[in-house]
């Protein structure tokens, strides 16, 4: 005698189906991001003749590094990359040194005009740089800062401070005031409590906000073009040139411009989750 045991496979199937759909969604979102970059990469490493073919092959069939080599050897690419990195990292540091204390104050203290202050922060972004360009250039010329990475750093810091302050303030909000008090009780000075307890806990979120700062600075062209002359950042150096160049160079330049910020985002990726985790509840 055999009893048939019926197992309800419904939930399992549903679970499997859901997982498959989730995977599918994840894969298609990844493709949405990755395919354009892949296509640019393929085009950047194709021969110039190959680019004129139609339809274009989706794999590097006409592989050639000549365009890339010519582009990379053109004047100012290496120097521009160095300048961009200097400016990006310095912007990150300066805007953190100025912005984090402001964010901490917004998170921990209530003071008169706090809301107005938060709103006023965003006004720096409301004024387009085009309007400011000539006065800015003149001011920097007059102070002798013109044509230095420091000038661009200062401008980029001003541009990124609002986001830095607002993001760090929500990150500090996520760090419980209790742990800070506990640190004080066990003998920390206020500064010590901040440095030893609050900062390490808030660091992941701050690191994530640095992605914004770095990428903003890396991608900013207009201000960098106005404030520099012979010490330009990479986008300022190549962007106008690329717009007038043959298609092949646009692909090569596009790839070179996108890779460093991708690397930076990849490095900071794991902290990103933490930022959204503490701010959106």
């Amino acid at each position: 005698m055999s009893a048939t045991i019926t197992v309800d496979t419904g939930p399992l199937a549903r679970f499997k189906r859901r997982r498959a759909l989730l995977q599918l969604a994840a894969v298609s979102i990844s493709l949405f991001m990755a395919v354009p970059i892949y296509l640019i990469a393929v085009a950047a490493f194709s021969t110039r003749d190959g680019l004129n073919q139609f339809p274009q092959p989706l794999w590097p069939k006409n592989f050639g590094t000549q365009t890339m080599e010519t582009f990379l050897s053109s004047t100012g690419i290496v120097a521009g990359t160095i300048n961009s990195l200097i400016v990006g990292v310095s912007t990150l540091i300066v805007s953190f040194l100025v912005g984090a204390p402001a964010g901490y104050a917004l998170a921990r203290f209530t003071f008169r005009g706090k809301d107005a202050y938060q709103l006023a922060l965003l006004f720096t972004r409301a004024l387009p740089i085009v309007v400011l360009s000539v006065p800015l250039a003149r001011a920097f010329l007059a102070t002798g800062l013109y044509d230095t990475p420091l000038a661009v750093t200062l401008l980029h810091t001003a541009l990124s401070l609002p986001t830095t302050i607002l993001i760090t303030s929500s990150v500090f909000l996520g760090v419980s005031a209790d742990v800070e008090e506990a640190a004080r009780i066990f003998g920390c000075t206020p500064a010590g409590a901040f440095l030893r307890v609050v900062l390490p806990l808030a660091l992941p979120g701050i690191a994530a906000s640095s992605i914004f700062t770095f990428v903003t600075s890396w991608n900013e062209v207009l201000g960098a073009t106005i404030l520099t002359f012979s010490q330009r950042t990479l986008p300022a150096q190549v962007l106008t040139s690329l717009a007038d160049s043959p298609l092949a160079y646009r692909f090569a330049g596009g790839l070179v411009l996108v890779i460093p910020s991708l690397i930076f985002i990849a490095l900071m990726r794991k902290y990103l989750l933490n930022m959204w985790g503490t701010t959106i509840r």
């Binding site: 053109s74 004047t75 100012g76 290496v78 120097a79 521009g80 160095i82 300048n83 200097i86 400016v87 990292v89 310095s90 990150l92 540091i93 300066v94 953190f96 040194l97 230095t148 990475p149 420091l150 750093t153 900062l199 390490p200 660091l203 690191a207 520099t228 002359f229 012979s230 010490q231 330009r232 150096q237």
Partner: peptide, 24 residues
């Protein structure tokens, strides 16, 4: 990470004084 940031800070601020020349 904190240490690295500190290191980068000093390096970055020091080097911000002079950049690389891009005119050819």
């Amino acid at each position: 990470l904190l240490a690295a940031t500190g290191g980068l800070a000093s390096a970055g601020i020091l080097s911000a004084c002079s950049g690389a020349k891009t005119s050819g």
